[in-house]
């Protein structure tokens, strides 16, 4: 890390993926996520295919598996909700090691878990291989309205500000003997949230003032010459959703796993 470290989700490497123009990667990621999200919930061939393709991308981009797994933790609430489905859904049930589980719930869980994990992985690979300014410029090149990219830029900046403030607050608490290890010990930390918000807001204001002082007008300036996307760039990037589309086609021909049972 060190010199190239830019944001907590970025993996500093020099792979082909890292060097693809950002807007090409954005299109490829959105297409991939769209294909995964719209796949039938029992299309295991499409899900497995997408998993293999994304694993290959991660490998080619030198994004460590451990990094992906730890960042995928943010999807935990969805996964927990999905895993509850087999227990709470109504309809016919099957016995799995003595526990009666709803068949509908099982398929629902499979679909939800697969879509969540695959979609999140695709997005993670995008941000892991793209620096924030490049990402924002990429969105601008895709004609995303500047007001939206500005909101995104502001959110990212405030996010770092808030993460920094949380760290400082946590240190200040730790220094005075507070060492939360369990959920029920989080009281003081949550009590500090209000203060945290105000401090982060004020800090964000100061950062913004510093940007204005240097002539910021709402658009990030272009600092590095951007190379135009070549046909090869598009071909490499779109191969990812392309392969996922192939898996979906195969899945559609073979039929969903629900029919196999």
């Amino acid at each position: 890390m060190g010199a190239g470290h830019t944001h907590p989700l970025h993996v500093h490497e020099h792979s082909r993926t890292h060097h693809l123009p950002a807007h090409v990667k954005v299109v490829a990621t959105l297409t991939t996520a769209g294909l995964v999200a719209t796949a039938p919930r029992d299309d295991v061939i499409a899900f497995a295919g997408a998993a293999v393709v994304l694993a290959a991308v991660a490998r080619a981009s030198r994004v460590p598996g451990r990094f992906l797994v730890s960042r995928l933790a943010v999807t935990a609430p969805f996964l927990i909700a999905a895993l509850l489905l087999p227990f709470v859904a109504s309809g016919p049930r099957v016995d799995v090691v003595g526990v009666p589980l709803a068949v509908e719930g099982l398929w629902g869980a499979l679909g939800l878990v697969s879509r969540t994990l695959l979609g999140a992985t695709a997005s993670l690979l995008l941000v892991a291989t793209t620096e924030v300014p490049a990402l924002l410029r990429g969105l601008e090149r895709l004609r995303v309205p500047p007001v939206l990219t500005q909101i995104a830029a502001t959110m990212l900046r405030y996010l770092e500000v808030i993460v920094g403030e949380v760290g400082r607050q946590r240190r200040a608490m730790t220094a005075r003997g507070y060492d939360p290890r369990w959920l029920w010990q989080l009281g003081p930390l949550t009590a500090g949230l209000g203060v945290l918000f105000v401090r982060a807001y004020e800090r964000g204001e100061r950062v913004h003032a510093a940007m204005l002082a240097r002539g910021f007008t709402g658009r990030m300036p272009v600092l590095v010459a951007e190379r135009p996307a070549t046909a090869a760039d598009w071909a490499v990037a779109m191969a990812v959703p392309g392969l996922v589309a192939v898996a979906r086609t195969v899945g559609a021909v073979v039929g969903g796993a629900e029919a196999w049972a």
Binding site: A3, R214, G215, T217, L223
Partner: peptide, 15 residues
């Protein structure tokens, strides 16, 4: 606030 010193120094003149 930029990710590299060089980019931060360039921010003003680029604006």
């Amino acid at each position: 606030f930029m990710s590299r010193v060089r980019d931060d120094v360039a921010f003003g003149p680029a604006n």
